[in-house]
Simulated assay, not measured.
Amino acid sequence: MAERETLLKILDLARWAPSGDNTQPWRFEIVSGDHIAVRGFDTRDHVLYDFDGHASHMGHGALLETLRIAASGFGLDATWTLRVGSRDNNPIYDVLLRESPGSAPDSLFRHIEQRVVQRRPMSMTPLTVEQRQVLAAAPGSAYQVQFLESLGDRLKVARLLWDNAYIRLTCPEAYEVHRKIIEWGARYSKDRIPEGAVGVDPVTARLMRWVMQRWGRVEFFNRYLLGTIAPRIQLDFLPALGCAGHLLLRPCEAPAGLVDYVRAGVAMQRLWLTASAVGLHLQPEMTPVIFRWYVQAGRRFSAVPEIGRRTLLLAGDFEALVGASERSAFVFFCRVGRSVVPGSRSLRKDLSELLVD
């Protein structure tokens, strides 16, 4: 049985796993020296981007994989199971640890805290053959990584994200989410995205801060002052061109339930940490994937009819771009490239805030 101090060190590393808008949808319970319970939750009731909790479930998977990698650095093997009777919106994962004498730490161990989101344009230097090979292998045999690297492909993705951003910025149901996730005037944030990491220039940031105080202002700027143009250029179009390429993670079999999305989160985290290991930065581009989940389920997320029409067109454009059918499953979309280390980033809540009795 591991000492409590060792378990705390493992959890202190595990908490650096990524989650949607830095929501950290998990709490930790140390049950015994060889048993940690991860108590998950989701944000589907108030965040439209958490379709049926799937984004949070992927976050749980990233956390569980990070915990496993962290444990390997202390000579421990960690395995998890979903507790019988767990509900999808409050799943409990039982993590059991056992000694693994002589085993080396996972090669991704030292990249746990190094992994970060880069929302600004990156170098367009192409991926090397080695980088492409290790990225393709990182998620495991149950997933295919599709690469979109040419200038033509990056331009098509830029157009897709341009249209996607219009939906995101004109949807009243998304406004409440956007209003709460940014910590204005901050370089670091423990539970949100700091202003410095958003990816816009200071003038645009000040304007966004003022406009986003009320939906009426957002609507006025969008309708009469081309309010979506500056953020779409800086947050979507230019970054989509300024990278080595975009990666689409496609499961060989479509996810059928909570555990499948948790496993997709495991694959996502291994892809992300591997990108860090080969000198790349990464930015998730998940909203086109999530909007497409709504389309596949035949469900709308906005009371505005135009939003529904645009979302349907967006899903079709996404499928045409990657040569997929309506039934094809997508679980993660991102861009990668070389860049300087971001000077601003999301931190995490202190471990003491994440521990429960």
Results as ranks from 00 to 15, higher is better:
M1K: 01
E3N: 07
E3V: 04
L8P: 00
L8H: 11
L11G: 03
R15C: 02
A17V: 09
D21F: 12
T23Q: 12
P25C: 02
E29C: 01
G33Y: 02
H35V: 09
Y49L: 05
D50W: 14
H54L: 06
I69V: 09
G73K: 05
G75V: 03
G75C: 01
A78Q: 00
A78F: 00
L82D: 09
R83G: 04
V84H: 13
D88C: 07
D88Y: 12
D88Q: 08
N90Y: 13
Y93R: 06
L97E: 00
L97S: 01
E99N: 08
S100L: 01
S103F: 12
F109I: 07
R110D: 15
H111K: 09
V116T: 15
S123L: 15
M124Y: 03
V129W: 13
V129M: 12
R132H: 08
V134L: 13
P139V: 02
S141E: 14
S141K: 14
A142M: 07
A142Y: 10
Y143F: 15
Q144V: 12
L151E: 08
L151G: 01
L151Y: 10
V157T: 12
L161G: 00
D163T: 02
I167P: 01
E176I: 02
E176C: 00
H178L: 15
R187Y: 05
R187T: 13
Y188Q: 12
Y188K: 13
G196C: 09
T204R: 09
R206Y: 03
M208N: 07
W210P: 00
Q213M: 02
W215C: 00
V218P: 02
F221S: 06
R223S: 04
L226R: 11
G227R: 05
A230W: 13
L235G: 09
L238M: 13
P239H: 07
G242S: 04
H246C: 11
L247S: 11
L249H: 14
A254I: 11
P255H: 13
R263V: 14
M268W: 10
Q269M: 06
L273H: 02
A275T: 06
A275P: 06
S276H: 04
L280A: 10
L280Y: 10
H281D: 01
W293G: 07
V295A: 15
R299M: 14
R299Q: 15
F301K: 00
F301M: 05
P305R: 03
E306M: 09
I307C: 05
I307W: 00
L312Y: 03
A320N: 11
C334P: 10
S339F: 12
V341A: 13
S344F: 10
K349P: 06
S352L: 07
E353S: 09
L354R: 08
D357N: 12
D357W: 11
